[in-house]
């Protein structure tokens, strides 16, 4: 009765394993065009923390596949992508909660300017046995130009009844009231926009052990791209 995603066994070939009691910490920074598949097997009691950063100017097709194969594991997955020109960014995640008591928290933020295209697809599957699952997914996007496009598709397949799951997707523009407030203090319009973008992507970097260097690289990229 479960969806086809659960009919197949977890693919272990080429997968990284988050072992029980251990933390799998991955930071993936994309600085050139690429296609990558990331597979993770999260064993019981493990913790996984993945941060994905796609820099402006990079077209990328990233898929992330995570299977919870033991009880009581947790995963935090966060990503940000900044597109200012004609980038094509596609990010797909599939999280399979096969076992009870696992928690997943996903946050993706995208900034789409120029004529760029961003597509996010996030699938969460909770197996019939995976009671006490907590699974959250947020996809927040800023659309900065009329010619850019953002598609965000959350998909939840829940086959257990005692679970907490939520997803949310937003596509918005820079808040004009914030902009006026900053400008009224003498912050130039362009700088106000940069500050707003920095504040928009900031929550994604919270998972890094030392977010400062990454934040500085992103700020520099934002300033030269917008």
């Amino acid at each position: 009765m479960a969806g086809h995603y659960l009919d197949i066994a977890p693919v272990s070939e080429g997968a990284e394993v988050a072992a029980g009691g251990k933390r799998l910490h991955k930071v993936l920074v994309i600085r050139e065009d690429c296609k990558q598949d990331i597979r993770v097997i999260a064993e019981g009691g493990s913790s996984t923390d993945i941060t994905l950063v796609i820099m402006p100017g990079c077209s990328a097709d990233i898929s992330l596949d995570l299977d919870f194969t033991g009880e009581g594991a947790g995963a935090r997955i966060a990503g940000l992508y900044i597109c200012a020109g004609d980038e094509r960014v596609k990010v797909s995640t599939t999280l399979r909660h096969r076992m009870p008591g696992c928690t997943s928290d996903q946050l993706f933020t995208g900034i789409a300017g120029g004529e760029s295209r961003i597509a996010f697809a996030g699938t969460i599957i909770v197996a019939p046995d995976a009671q006490k699952t907590e699974a959250y997914q947020q996809s927040r996007n800023l659309l900065l130009s009329r010619d850019a496009k953002v598609d965000t598709e959350p998909q939840l397949e829940i086959y257990a009844d005692d679970v907490k799951c939520s997803h949310g997707a937003t596509v918005g523009s820079l808040n004009p009231d914030e902009q006026f407030y900053m400008r009224s203090r003498g912050i130039p319009e362009k700088e106000a926009r940069i500050l707003q973008m920095i504040s928009f992507i900031a929550p994604v970097l919270e998972g890094l052990d030392d977010p400062a260097p990454m934040a500085a690289e992103i700020e520099k990229a934002l300033r030269s791209s917008f």
Binding site: E178, I187, L195, Q196, S199, F200, P203
Partner: peptide
């Protein structure tokens, strides 16, 4: 007054 999440008073 407007809230600006992610921007500290110092940076602002």
């Amino acid at each position: 007054p407007i809230e600006i999440p992610g921007v500290s008073i110092t940076a602002f």
